[in-house]
Amino acid sequence: MSNDLAGIDVTVDGNVLRITVNRPSRMNAVTTESLDAIASTLNHYRNDSAIRVAVLTGSGRTFCTGADLSSIEEISDPPSPATIDAANRSVTEIITFPHPVIGAINGPAAGVGVSLALACDLTVAAESSYLLLAFTKIGLMPDGGATALVAASIGRARALRMALLAERLPAATAADIGLIAATYPDDNFAESVEALTRQIADGPAHALGTTKFAINAATLTEIHNALERERSGQLELISEPDFSEGVQAFLEKRPAAFGRATIA
């Protein structure tokens, strides 16, 4: 099974559900349709008794570089909540999926790609990969639950540093500070992920699912409020000149000149 239009490949391998972001020409940047496909796939299989674990990853050498800004046809158009809502549905489906979801960061994860990865229950990364909350570089705030997911793992101070400064966080550092579960060498990343997948798939499904639910319920108490706050804040920011300048600068591959557009 696959969704070529949305750039999402879906396969079922025995008791393993595999979801792969497959838009290599856009460095696996996602669209509203991509995010909807992820959400609908997880929802479709959540009651499938054969599935015991899901794996979310990216094709090639990239996990997901966030929302596809090249799909914005007219920056001055009124803001639409469609992509934000699709991201929120995807993250919610990952968190509430009845079995563990492994996030396999095979390469750079940026923007909402970080949110998707951190919503997973066991997030592992290739040693050469990194995580980047790049939102402020285009005049936006983190979304997809990132304001709750990051802080729940590494605390307020480190979360603010990551979100406000938009610094690349190497995978090894992410593992050291507890943002992700582990890193694996690039040359055997796929094999390591497969071994982890099989360990979960061969484990006690009910116990693992119940454990996931209990830990998420204890640690992600703010996730739904965070999604609502991010939606409200993001829609406000999308309508401001800094976002227009940020996107234009991104498309033109130049540093953004924030604030200048608001000076009369």
Rank of each mutant, 00 (worst) to 15 (best):
A159W: 00
T173G: 04
D176Y: 02
R156N: 07
L160M: 08
K212V: 05
A152K: 12
I215Q: 08
L17I: 04
R231I: 13
E74C: 10
P108I: 07
S115Y: 08
H44N: 02
L237W: 06
A39S: 14
I102C: 04
K253D: 15
D187H: 14
A126K: 15
S192Q: 13
I95C: 12
C120H: 06
L5Y: 06
A174C: 09
F189W: 11
M27A: 04
I200H: 03
G144N: 11
T92K: 11
R168S: 08
H224G: 04
P241L: 07
A171E: 15
L169D: 05
A29G: 02
A257R: 14
G233I: 02
I154T: 04
T136E: 10
E194N: 12
L227S: 06
K212N: 03
V21M: 12
L35K: 01
I51F: 05
F63L: 06
A146W: 04
A226V: 08
A207W: 00
G113I: 04
A249I: 13
L165S: 15
E73S: 09
P81C: 01
Y130D: 00
F213Y: 09
G145D: 03
L227G: 04
E194C: 01
A110Q: 14
R254C: 06
L118D: 12
L118T: 10
L179R: 00
E93Y: 07
G66V: 03
L149N: 11
A166D: 14
G60C: 03
R46D: 01
S76N: 03
H206R: 13
A117P: 01
D77Y: 02
E74P: 05
L69A: 09
L169F: 09
T96I: 01
I84C: 05
T183E: 12
T65I: 02
T183C: 15
L220A: 04
A182P: 04
F63G: 00
G209Q: 10
V12P: 04
D4L: 10
A125I: 05
E252P: 03
P170K: 06
N106W: 05
A249V: 12
A37N: 03
T20Q: 08
R23E: 08
E167F: 03
D9I: 00
F97T: 11
A148F: 03
C64A: 12
A54R: 13
E222S: 06
F189K: 05
S232I: 10
